[in-house]
């Protein structure tokens, strides 16, 4: 015979604790949302400041106006007064950086992740590499700036390898900065792909590469995209490391190629924000809006790609 136990269900405490926990979770969620909306609101109200005497004086009438305003802000080059100035230099520089970082960091990051997940057998080598990558992801960004200065700008003192304060240097530095995060995110996504797909593919006589190309990577794509977008957003939003690898604090004309000097958008914003003049402050806020638009469009692209690739997995 089994011994009979009495149960002490604590029903009342549990009835209270359950909802309390739910409320705590709701608060946690909304603290983020609230901070974000305060931030956005203050940037918007500063950026669109409507008192006379401020640059781009009037509050826009509607969304079309707002678009026009941002567009002119994005395309104008620095002028004499705050009214005629714009962030063309920053926008062009940042787009160059974005493109080149994508070009460098994405293939290298994906390649490393595939290698680590699909080819390396678990063991000491993998553990050492893995730990290194995880640590690199936590290195402060200014350190990458210093690394970029020595490695790319100065080429370790070898003239032929020195890239100077060009977009090349900036893009390579930022690529190094985001690589660890790209690798780790892609590894997670690849690891989450069920092994049964791999087994099924290999059992049909596929090579490892065919398996990875046609099954593992497509299934991991949504996760990989998330990591990529986060990393690329970080790359174009970073200020500290580019401070080390740009020379100009402001330029009159946007760069025309990757060998030119550049001032990325965050740095331009920083430059305006430094000045006490409210007109400059407003400009800085306008720049932040531009940066946000850029980031949000990148996220939108990621979401579209994620939904596309998720279609077959679902029904």
């Amino acid at each position: 015979m089994q011994e009979l136990h009495t149960y002490t269900p604590h029903s009342r405490i549990r009835r209270i604790l359950g909802p309390l926990f739910a409320i705590a979770c709701v608060l946690a969620t909304f603290s983020g949302v609230v901070v974000l909306s305060i931030l956005l609101g203050s940037v918007l109200s500063t950026g669109l400041g409507h008192q006379a005497g401020r640059p781009w004086y009037h509050l826009p009438q509607n969304a079309w106006d707002l678009g026009q305003l941002l567009l002119s802000l994005a395309t104008k080059t620095p002028g004499e007064s705050a009214q005629t100035t714009g962030f063309r230099v920053g926008v062009v520089s940042s787009l160059w950086l974005l493109g080149l970082v994508t070009l460098f960091a994405v293939p290298v990051g994906l390649g490393a992740a595939v290698y680590l997940e699909e080819y390396v057998r678990p063991g000491r080598f993998k553990a050492v590499v893995q730990t290194n990558i995880a640590n690199l992801a936590g290195v402060p960004s200014i350190v990458y700036g210093i690394l970029g200065l020595t490695l790319f700008v100065r080429g370790f003192g070898f003239k032929p390898f020195a890239l100077g304060y060009s977009i090349w240097s900036g893009a390579l530095t930022l690529s190094l900065l985001v690589l660890p995060v790209i690798i780790i995110a892609a590894q997670e996504a690849i690891r989450a792909v069920p092994t049964t797909y791999r087994q099924a593919a290999l059992a049909l006589g596929a090579t490892r590469w065919q398996t990875v190309r046609d099954h593992v990577l497509p299934a991991a794509l949504p996760g990989i995209m998330t990591g990529l977008i986060l990393s690329l957003s970080r790359a174009i939003g970073e200020t500290a490391p580019v401070l080390m690898v740009t020379q100009a604090s402001s330029l009159l004309n946007p760069p025309r190629g990757p060998g030119d000097q550049y001032v990325p958008l965050p740095l331009e914003i920083y430059n305006y924000a430094k000045y006490p003049d409210p007109a400059d402050q407003t400009l800085a806020a306008g720049g932040i809006l531009l940066l946000l638009v850029l980031l949000i469009s990148m996220n939108a692209v990621a979401i579209v790609i994620r939904n596309r690739s998720g279609r077959l997995n679902r029904n």
Binding site: Y197, Q199, A203, L204, G205, D214, L312
Partner: peptide, 26 residues
């Protein structure tokens, strides 16, 4: 060898692709 010695697994494990593609891929 694995092309000549095929394998069907315990749990059905079709690829997350179309029916056509499941057959055609191999």
């Amino acid at each position: 060898l694995r092309r000549r010695v095929g394998m069907v697994f315990q749990r059905p494990n079709p690829f997350p692709k179309t029916i056509y593609e499941n057959v055609a891929w191999g």
